[in-house]
């Protein structure tokens, strides 16, 4: 039987590949959900009632059901019901389906945070801009935007840290992220089985990445500390 030192390169190799998937899913989700969330936020705040009701209804469903179910449905539903497996069976397809599920899910959460941020900026700020002859877009970009960002950074930080850990849910459609990679050595893979120690390494990967994110987001928060 191999020693842990001999197994180490094999395990780290697998974990690295898995963590790359985790990171990819994380960044793609952020890249998609941050702007989509803004669109949804504007939708739910729309003065056109049917649009705002529909948006709120969708947000209610997405936030009220587990992401795991949403992912199962998004990945398997087209193939099972319409006999049209739009995602394909390979790694790319699973990654795409997971990304779409995550983006939609997180955009809904983000939209609620944005809504709070936008509505949290006092009405007087907009009026002060109006009486000073500013255009709507000048008011948004020069006055309200930064105040809104300041308001949403703390709750967004929480969601972003949660997202890092939530990426593990993509295992349900067999996306081979880092926990799948670590668990493979519990099940038995590449001559290593029944090994729990790769799981500690897996946890360590999350810890380091979340540590970096916490520092960066903390810095951003601090940077916005100069005003209230």
């Amino acid at each position: 039987m191999q020693t842990i030192m001999e197994q180490m390169p094999i395990v780290l190799n697998s974990l690295n590949a898995g963590f790359l998937q985790t990171l990819k899913l994380f960044f793609v989700t952020l890249l998609g959900a941050i702007p989509l969330g803004l669109i949804i936020a504007f939708g739910s705040m729309s003065r056109f009632k049917p649009l705002s009701l529909l948006t709120k209804f969708i947000v209610w469903i997405i936030r009220g059901t587990p992401l795991m179910i949403q992912m199962l449905i998004i990945y398997y539903f087209p193939g099972l019901v319409f006999n049209n497996p739009i995602w394909g069976g390979g790694e790319t397809g699973r990654f795409l389906a997971a990304s779409v599920s995550f983006i939609i899910n997180y955009a809904c959460y983000f939209s609620e945070i944005y809504r709070g941020g936008i509505q949290g900026v006092p009405k007087g700020q907009e009026e002060a801009g109006l009486v000073l002859g500013m255009t709507r877009s000048q008011i948004f970009f020069k006055v309200t935007l930064l105040q809104m960002i300041k308001r949403i950074v703390p709750p967004m930080s929480n969601e972003i840290i949660t997202l890092v850990k939530d990426t593990a849910l993509a295992r349900i459609i067999s996306l081979q992220e880092v926990i799948w990679a670590g668990q493979a050595f519990m099940k038995g893979s590449q001559g290593i089985s029944g090994a729990i120690w790769p799981m500690f390494f897996t946890a360590f990967y999350y810890l380091i990445f979340n540590g970096i994110l916490t520092v960066l987001l903390g810095r951003l928060e601090k940077k916005l500390d100069y005003f209230r």
């Binding site: 007087g124 700020q125 002859g133 930064l146 105040q147």
Partner: peptide, 19 residues
Amino acid sequence: RKKRLHFGFVFQSFNLFPQ
């Protein structure tokens, strides 16, 4: 927008831009 420039307006709650 242009018409409002005839007036200056001072609010009860100041409404200074905090940033």
